[in-house]
Design a protein around this nucleic acid. Structure first.
Lengths: 218, 218
DNA sequence: TCATAAATAGGGGTTTTTCCTTTTTTTTAT
DNA sequence: ATAAAAAAAAGGAAAAACCCCTATTTATGA
């Protein structure tokens, strides 16, 4: 059987059950073929380094433990700009959508979409180069018109938020520094900055603030 | 083609893409057949009320918006006790696992399992009536041996609860000791006892535990 | 480009937390 | 009344958190 003009897809998702299932679903789409799967961005890099064939489209999960969606997409849009990346996410978080698109995602799909929608999105992204749902178009429009929510975001910086979330675990600051690949002294700097900004005294205050403001779930 | 002895499965998951994909995956398992899918427990009830065929096994997602996994499983084990329910979850949270099993789940699977594992779990649950992974067996064993966390209320003593609540403020242990009119060394004793009982490493764990178990409000 | 701001990182110190062991005091049950 | 159990307290020490100040290094904008 000829495989000419079959569109090649790679799935990057740490939930093997989902990835495998999705693979079967895509097998039912004519003209599409799943080349292989990866559990995270780092694994994808390994595949690439082994000179495995490159896909036309990557279906990318956002929440992954090792090399997460954002890191992966940043690398991809840098190193392999002509591979279209469709982000698959559980949440329709405005911030997250924006980050992904800014980093080079060609589309953002919620995991509760209809399978037909995925097929459509795949076709669109191959044809037009991007696929944005109506909802995302609305968000993008809001941003252009300056209607977005600027305030909350400006208080805490990117890395401070990452630190804040990690501070809500039982990890030591040293361990957090390792995870964020930063010096413990830098982490200590974030801590002092947050204590001052949020007017708190210690790590308990940090945890309470994070929970109250939905930076972490309990 | 005969469908005699094909095991009937129903998928309950609000992520349509996952549910549909999973359906395709199960189609590749010989001897299994997906009857239909539902987006949540309420939808499943509707299916049942319409006298649609009942499945042998239900694959149930935990996190659903309308009628969540726990509610669904409680209803099922009450109204349809001979339908085996396999819970599919993202997280391996001990509390959650216990709640599910107490409510009548016949198995608990993480979404990052291997597809073959799912097949195995389906076979096991049909054959033996249950399927527990090693990890869950460990947890269950801990409970039996009293190592786990059995009853939250009776687990903690009066003073320990008082201390726990105060530990969720920005006060130092010294200050907590003053408030409770006890020696800092006694407070330290409570702390050690709680760390050991609750299997936590530091004060962050204390705060998270207290919030999760409604000892304090946020 | 150059000044400036921001992010990162280091030095070095104090306080608090954490841990392990042991002792004293109080409570409880027989 | 007394042995056993539970609660309170302490000694001593290492690790982590906390704090202030300074020095790079990296972005950024006029």
């Amino acid at each position: 059987m000829s495989v000419v003009n079959e569109h090649k897809i790679v799935i990057v998702d740490d939930h093997l059950l989902f990835a495998s299932s999705l693979e079967k679903l895509i097998h039912t789409f004519v003209g599409f073929k799943v080349l292989y799967k990866a559990g995270n961005g780092a694994e994808l890099q390994e595949h690439f380094e082994l000179n495995k064939p490159k896909p036309d489209v990557i279906l990318l999960d956002v929440n992954m433990p090792v090399m997460n969606g954002l890191e992966t997409i940043s690398w991809l849009s840098e190193a392999h700009p002509n591979i279209k990346v469709l982000v698959l996410s559980m949440e329709d978080d405005e911030e997250q959508i924006l980050k992904m698109i800014r980093s080079g995602a060609k589309g953002y799909l919620l995991k509760d979409i209809d399978p037909e929608n995925l097929k459509h999105a795949l076709n669109e992204v191959l044809e037009k180069g991007f696929y944005y749902t109506e909802k995302i178009n609305e968000i993008l429009l809001d941003i252009v018109q300056g209607k977005g929510k600027p305030d909350q975001k400006s208080l805490l910086k990117e890395n401070e938020i990452t630190f804040l979330k990690l501070a809500c675990t039982e990890k030591t600051y040293k361990e957090i520094a390792d995870i964020m690949c930063l010096s413990p002294k830098t982490i200590d700097g974030y801590r002092q900055e947050l204590f001052s900004k949020l007017n708190i005294k210690n790590r308990v205050g940090l945890v309470l603030y994070a929970i109250k403001n939905n930076f972490v779930d309990v």
